[in-house]
Design a protein around this nucleic acid. Structure first.
Lengths: 203, 203
DNA sequence: AATTGACCATGACAGATGTCATGGCTTTAC
DNA sequence: GTAAAGCCATGACATCTGTCATGGTCAATT
């Protein structure tokens, strides 16, 4: 009995490479691939998927929100394994909260991926122990919704005036949110704060 | 007669996936893999490599400087194909200047990679036409060495004082270089300038 | 009913940043 | 030998940024 796998990653070559790698295993079969997670629900129904392997960074619908949709629609019938480039604590926390069964980074050893797929398919959990420890020690996202908004806008170096205009706020309010975020991230300006927040997967 | 391939990419799973993909082709054989380009010269000699497929973003020795070393050491005996996540004009320009025979991005169609390897092995060039046009229209890097230095430091949001200390310069000089870089990139602050420069592969 | 916390806003202040003019030093090009 | 270009530096200026005090609304909690 083979495990039927769906693979979602925005980079075509990576997707094809991972599929080739997994299809080398006798008990694994990549039956469908997607460049993003828009049609993932229908695809899973149509192809009777057992395990969905999802990237996080994708256009339109990202892997984490897709995970939420999947667990709501299928519950335990489909296991979700997140496979991402960046081992950010916040990503892991959000993925597990959304119902993912496993979490791996793309520079993990190759054999580990197949093993993780078998584990989650059997109902277990597959999380990199190093990442798990990091996520626990990192604590949770301290930023409020608005602080995340302004930091997201600040990521590309926009000025206070610009951010204020885009969020329909006064300049002073934006500066207050920024100042608060800088304090919470223990940094000393918006650029560092935005960087740090992104690294932790808080945006 | 099979084409003997070396693969360098810092992410283990990606590397293994690409190897699996290429080994499906009868005329291609991935005989060696590296997580970065430090020992690439010896590896090529030892395994009688025909084509080196190199990522750009790698720790220690990156793909572009490795390309320079390879063309100097082996000339036309080894073909270099750059395979990168980011299709930045400056990357392409620098890679070709260093002696690369081909340049591909990781979200290109899967069949195209094998085809590109055959092309460069036959002495031809394989460059995405869209990227090539972009690189031509983008013009060349307008930044001086020092401007690139300060922008690189500014990438993570360091203050003028901090940058000055790290580069052993006076604060005023750093501000002058930054101001000049901001002018050349037609942006309005260091963060935007650093972003733009990085996007164009100028750092 | 009182409290807490997120949100929005204003005003004031010190310090950081971006711009400009100016000048000296060195290397490369004509 | 002179011009051009990059590099380093200083001082002055206007503006932007980060911080703080203060005060208001609103929703959820106690």
């Amino acid at each position: 009995m083979t495990i039927r796998i769906l693979l979602a990653d925005d980079q075509h070559l990576i997707r094809a490479g991972l599929a080739a790698l997994l299809n080398l295993e006798d008990d694994l079969d990549v039956v469908h691939q997607l460049p993003d997670c828009t049609g993932v629900l229908e695809a899973i129904r149509e192809h009777a998927i057992d395990v969905a392997v999802l990237d996080i960074e994708m256009p339109d619908v990202d892997g984490i929100t897709a995970t939420g949709q999947l667990t709501e629609a299928f519950g335990d019938d489909v296991a979700v394994l997140i496979l991402t480039t960046f081992g950010r604590a916040g990503y892991l926390q959000r993925a597990m909260a959304a119902g993912a069964c496993g979490f791996m980074v793309k520079d993990a050893p190759a054999e580990q991926l197949a093993e993780a797929i078998r584990t989650v398919h059997a109902g277990g959990r597959a999380v990199d122990p190093v990442l798990a420890a990091e996520a626990l020690s990192a604590g949770s996202n301290p930023l409020t919704d608005r602080e995340r908004d302004v930091l997201r806008e600040a990521l590309d170096g926009a000025s206070v005036k610009h951010i204020a205009a885009r969020l329909h706020l006064s300049a002073g309010t934006v500066r207050n949110h920024l100042s608060s975020a800088i304090g919470k991230t223990q940094t000393s300006n918006r650029a560092e704060a935005a960087r740090m927040a992104q690294q932790n997967g808080w945006l």
